[in-house]
Design a binder for these strands. Structure first.
Lengths: 122, 122
DNA sequence: GAAGTGGTTCTACGCGGCGTAGAACTCAGC
DNA sequence: GCTGAGTTCTACGCCGCGTAGAACCACTTC
């Protein structure tokens, strides 16, 4: 698990959502079309800039054997979020206290999911 | 639980650590002394600026009935971190998938803590 | 192989947040 | 009302992010 994950800006997050939501790798143009359909028209160059920043940050990878290049997520959204949770948890000095507060404030459904997952685990 | 918690900068985090680590409310001067002892000397005005930004963001509160003002954390560090975890979790569309990844990658000690907490809970 | 066309990189600008702190102000005590 | 510690006001520089123009590259088509 990478430490010190870079933060995502607002547009970067929107782009990541598009990349995550797609079953296949997307070209910059694909992303542009999707955002335009979602009411957020942007210049193609803007998408390219954002995508290359995301690539530098390690959030997407590009397949350069085809033209146009295809961008795909490095980690799934769930993996990404789970990693973030671990990173946040690692900030603390008293993990137990944090977990206590965390569990104490999850919904009953989430608690049920956790119980099930932990049962299967040990 | 507040949504959209503002992010903490690097110095802001250091200051919050000092505030969290102290059993009583601190004056700006106290914080300055502590950071200086920790090898990070800063002008008093810098601390005041940071503290007022932290107050505006809702991380600390100031007692203005005494002079110098005393700053104390609004939430404990554990509460803060737990809130962050919830916020991150809320980013996801598939909470279950995230929880699965999360639980799948916690240490055995953390898992034991979680099991215990969830047992007491339900 | 020169030209066109779509896609990509290079470069850059403006804005806002953060680290940093000087200058000006305020209030308790003399 | 002066003094000095403590606080607010103001500001500057840097960096990241949203944004995109201009230049560059790689195929197709004649």
């Amino acid at each position: 698990m990478r430490k010190n994950m870079p933060a995502l800006g607002e547009l970067e997050r929107v782009v990541m959502d598009a990349v995550w939501d797609s079953p296949e790798a997307l070209s910059a143009y694909d992303v542009q079309q999707q955002l335009e359909a979602a009411g957020r028209p942007l210049a193609a160059t803007t998408l390219l800039t954002v995508l290359s920043r995301l690539e530098k940050k390690g959030f997407v990878a590009s397949d350069r054997t085809v033209r146009p290049y295809r961008y795909s997520p490095v980690a799934s959204r769930a993996d990404h979020v789970a990693e973030l949770m671990h990173e946040v948890l690692g900030e603390s000095r008293d993990r137990m206290a944090v977990l206590e507060r965390f569990v104490g404030s999850v919904s009953e459904e989430d608690a049920a999911v956790l119980r099930k997952l932990l049962r299967g685990d040990g």
